Amino acid sequence: MKLPRSIAGWTIAVFGVLALAMGALGLLWPEAQLRMLGLEVPETRTAGDYTGTFLVASSMAAFNMGVYYLLATVTEWRAFYRFTVVFRLVTFTVFTIAVLADIAPDGFFGVAAWEGLGAVATAVGLRLDARRVAPAGGVGTPAGPESAVTVEGGTGAAGAAPADAAR
Rank of each mutant, 00 (worst) to 15 (best):
F109A: 05
L117F: 15
T122M: 04
F87P: 01
A119I: 10
L117W: 10
G116F: 10
I103P: 01
A121V: 14
V94F: 09
V99P: 03
A113E: 03
G116R: 10
G137R: 01
A121C: 15
G110W: 02
G118T: 15
F83I: 11
T122A: 06
A79Q: 12
Y81F: 15
A134G: 00
V111T: 11
T96M: 01
A112G: 03
F87V: 08
D129T: 08
R88N: 11
I97M: 06
A130H: 02
A119H: 04
A119R: 04
F108N: 04
A119S: 06
L100C: 07
A143M: 06
L89H: 04
G140I: 08
V86R: 13
F108Q: 05
V133Q: 03
P105F: 00
T96D: 00
Y81D: 07
V85R: 03
F87Q: 03
F83H: 14
A134T: 15
T96K: 00
R127H: 14
A130P: 02
V139I: 14
V94D: 01
A119G: 10
A130V: 02
A121F: 15
V99H: 07
L100T: 14
G110M: 02
E146D: 15
A130S: 12
R88S: 07
D106F: 05
D129F: 05
Y81H: 11
D129A: 05
A130K: 08
T122F: 01
T122R: 03
F95L: 15
Y81E: 07
I103V: 15
G107M: 13
V99Y: 06
A101Y: 07
F109Y: 12
F92K: 04
F80R: 03
A143V: 11
P135K: 07
V139K: 10
F108Y: 14
G144F: 06
L89Y: 09
A123G: 05
F95D: 09
V99I: 10
V120K: 04
F80Q: 05
L128K: 12
T91S: 12
V124A: 09
G118W: 09
A136N: 11
L89T: 08
F92D: 01
G107A: 12
A119N: 04
E146T: 14
V120T: 13
V133G: 00
W114L: 15
V86F: 15
Y81L: 02
G140W: 06
G125T: 10
I97W: 10
G137M: 01
L117C: 09
R82S: 14
T141S: 08
G125Q: 10
I97N: 00
G118Y: 11
T96P: 00
L117P: 07
D129Y: 07
T84N: 09
A121W: 13
A143Q: 08
P105A: 00
P145E: 12
